[in-house]
Each structure stands twice: as C-alpha cells, then as structure tokens.
Nucleic acid binder design. Structure first.
Length: 329
DNA sequence: TCTGGAATAT
DNA sequence: GATATTCCAG
C-alpha cells in the first residue's frame, strides 16, 4: 500500500499518458539482456495481478476489465516463458493486429474483445486456451448479456447522482453500506486458482493498469448507488411537523416539506420518497376504510405514519397537536 | 423544474 | 415484506 505507482496516485497529472501493451512490448524488445527482459515482464505481471485483485470485488460489473487483465497477464507470462526457454524476441505482432483471424464470429458481433491468439497457444499451454472454454467462460461472466449492458449504459448516461450526501450518520438499514458501487456478486466464473494457473483467455490487450484504474474510478463513481437515508425519529418528527404546517400530507409537497424541515443534505427525492410512503400508509390505514380494530392499531402505536398527520388533517385549523414523533421507519 | 406513481434495489 | 432509491411521465 505504501508504494503506490505514480500513475496510480490520486493527483492526476495530465502529463501521464497510459501505455499500451504494444508499446510495452516494444520497450521490452529493446532490452538485450534476457534476464532483464524477463524481470521486466515479471514485474509487469505482478502489477497486473495486483490490479486484478483490486477490481476483484467488482469483477461482475467489470467483466471486460477482468478479461483484459487476464489476457495481458497470460500473454506476458507466455512471453516471459518464451524468453527464458528459447531466448527469442517477443512476438509483437500478436498484440498489434486488430482484426480477428478466424472462426470468432462472436467477437465481431460484440465488437469489444477481439481474440486473435494463434493456434500454437493450445500447444504451449495445455490449459483452457481453446475456443470452447473461452466461450464458456465469457458467457459465465455474462459478458454478452444485452440487458445487462443496456442497464449499465443507461446508468452511465443518466445524470450524475449525489453520492453519500446523507448527513444523519445513521446506521444503514438492510445491510446497505455507505458505498454500494456495484452488486458485489462474487460468483465469478473464474476462481483464483484458475487465474493463478493462467487458465484464462489469451487475446488482445490495449490498456495498462493505470488506465484501468481511471476507468474503474469513473465507472465506480457513475454507477454508485446513493447512500440509503435513514429516517431517524427526530428526522421523521421534523417531517411530520412540516406536514402539519403545510396542512397535511395530501397538500404538502416535497419541496416545501424539505424547506420547512431545514435538514442539511436532505434532498427533495428523499422527502418525496418518504412522503410517498407516508401517504401509502395513511391510505392503507385510512379511517374511512379501516375497521375499528385497525383504527385502534393506528392510535395505539402502530400508527407510526398516521397519528400526527391524521390529527393534523382532521383538525386543520386547530392548534392541538400531539407531538408524538414516530419512527424510525 | 417539480411532482406523483411505479419499478427497482437493499 | 418494509423501506429507500431511481426512473418515468405529466
């Protein structure tokens, strides 16, 4: 943690331009000493693996990043092994061509990942370098799920949401955390053992970790779900008081309620949501439709939503208010 | 822009 | 199932 590469530091410098793996290989190819070359490759592999660990929790949301990282790691490892065993120059062309070689109609359709690893891969590494495994793996990470992609795009297109604007400091309900960037489904198709063994799909890789970090950060920011607002009793009390001042839940509007509540960080959306729920409860427990028993429930304590507003509306003009804040909800 | 209602997420 | 968030239409 202490040794964060300069490209990964938070103080983004415009002078930094992420390298492509092609340029990296060019760089490596200039190194004459085989051990130096291998060392450089291994170092890079370690960085990639570290990067992969970072996004591991979000792999379901970032399948492409995972694949790209996998591809790069495998390619680099192979290159490293080749350097050691045959003492030959890296084959740059493997990473340069952008067109598919053959038999991969799938990649043409998605237009995102292009795998062009050569047949020899299956000879070199006896693991999952065949198309069948590749397809299985890709489908297992839901890479080609159209609905999913659409939902992601939709989120990316939608206006930026407020992030973590809650000021109440309540414990979140339902296990929600302060930062819920993604659905952290860890049932990713590739487990750590597979990954460590290099059982991944070889292919093309265009970005280096720093760029991935930036993408990841941006993606994280844009897909993060707003922190769940906890309506504490005190907050709900203010809400109800505002309702009463405005003449009841049916005439009060979110904006006015929020202004009357005077709570820092409280948004119209939150008030609106609370109001919606409030009205819903009120409708459900409305005296006009509820049985006497239900009314009793309302009066006796389950009336978290009813009591004040009910009084407020039924006794409009009257100043009698039983200030019995209820909640939290 | 604001609002209500509904869908969706937690 | 309850509650909060997000989306959508008016």
């Amino acid at each position: 943690m202490g040794s964060v590469p300069p490209e990964l530091s938070l103080d983004f410098r415009p002078t930094f331009v992420p390298k492509t793996i092609t340029s990296f290989f060019k760089e490596v190819s200039l190194i004459g000493n085989v051990s130096d070359k291998v060392s450089k490759l291994d170092t890079f592999v370690k960085r990639l693996e570290e990067e992969m660990r970072k996004i591991d929790a979000f792999k379901r949301e970032l399948p492409l990043c995972m694949i790209l990282l996998n591809d790069a790691i495998v390619a680099l490892k192979e290159e490293s092994m080749q350097c050691m065993s045959r003492n030959v120059e890296p084959v740059l062309e493997e990473f340069i061509p952008l067109k598919n070689k053959k038999g991969s109609s799938q990649s043409e359709e998605d237009g995102a990942l292009i795998t062009n690893k050569k047949e020899k891969d299956s000879n070199n590494s006896g693991n999952c370098n065949n198309n069948k495994d590749k397809k299985t793996w890709m489908s297992s990470v839901q890479l080609w799920n159209t609905d999913r992609d659409c939902s992601i795009d939709r989120k990316l297109d939608s206006k930026q949401r407020n992030i973590g604007d809650s000021t109440q400091g309540c414990k979140n309900q339902g296990g929600a955390t302060a930062c819920m960037p993604f659905k952290a489904d860890l049932s990713f198709a590739m487990n750590h053992v597979q990954r460590d063994q290099g059982q991944v799909v070889p292919g093309q890789f265009l970005l280096l970790p720093p760029m991935l970090s930036q993408i990841f950060g941006l993606y994280h920011q844009q897909t993060a779900r707003k922190q769940r607002r906890c309506w504490s009793p005190e907050l709900h009390c203010r809400f109800v008081n505002a309702l009463q001042q405005l003449g009841g839940s049916q005439v009060a509007t979110p904006k006015l309620i929020r202004e009357l509540m005077q709570v820092d960080g409280l948004t119209n959306d939150e008030v609106k949501s609370h109001l919606q729920k409030y009205r819903l409860h009120r409708r459900r427990l409305s005296p006009s439709t509820a049985s006497p028993a239900n009314q009793a429930v309302v009066v006796l304590g389950a009336g978290l939503w009813m009591s004040q507003d009910q009084q407020g509306e039924s006794s409009k003009g009257s100043s009698s208010q039983s200030d019995s804040p209820q909640g939290p909800l």
